[in-house]
Amino acid sequence: MKQFDQQTYYEILDLTPAAKPPDIRDAYRTALEMYQDESLASYSFFDEDERKTILSKLEEAFLALIDTDSKADYDQDLIRRGLINKDALDPTAQHEPILIDVLKRFRRENRVPVIRSKNLKSREMADEHLNNLLNHDVITGADLRKIRINVNISLDQISDETKIRTTYLEAIENDEFDKLPSRFHLKSFLRAYLKSFASDVEPYVERYLKRVE
């Protein structure tokens, strides 16, 4: 672990050396949201001096990287000092997911519950139907399909929300277990499928899976 003032501009902004100006701008904006005076997230985390140090370093990093010429100079310097590898500048190079990706993904995913909450009524209906199935020892894909159609949700919608391919969802409803990559996938896809219209999924997952050896 490096001291703060030993970190490269990339480390400070959670970027890779291959970052393009839009990434750099995004990263700087996120960093400001995290570190500036009014930031709720870092409230009481740093004292005033530390915050000043961080903010001025962030600005320094942003200005050095956002300008293509100055970034090129900085990169050459890092390569000379052995702090980064030349290949790291190649945008096609494999890299670890950086903070900005994680946050973007989180924001995307976080919109999902908003859509879902509109469906609370249909969820209530689905729960009622599902509840009736609890008397049965086993549940089939056809049972689930009936309920899904009843509450008016299409497989495409579920696929949109869960990012699971429609063909796999169809396989679940058709009891075609071997069309899924593995038993583990079957279980986790089934869970995700059920979650998109039901509140409590475990009892149904269990009853469905009873038929798979």
Partner: peptide
């Protein structure tokens, strides 16, 4: 903001080197 917890988790990771999941 919806990502407040995410930012807090990031701070903990970056400055205290500990894993905190939001």
């Amino acid at each position: 903001r919806p990502d407040l917890g995410q930012l807090m988790a990031t701070l903990a990771r970056k400055h205290l080197a500990l894993k905190m999941d939001f």
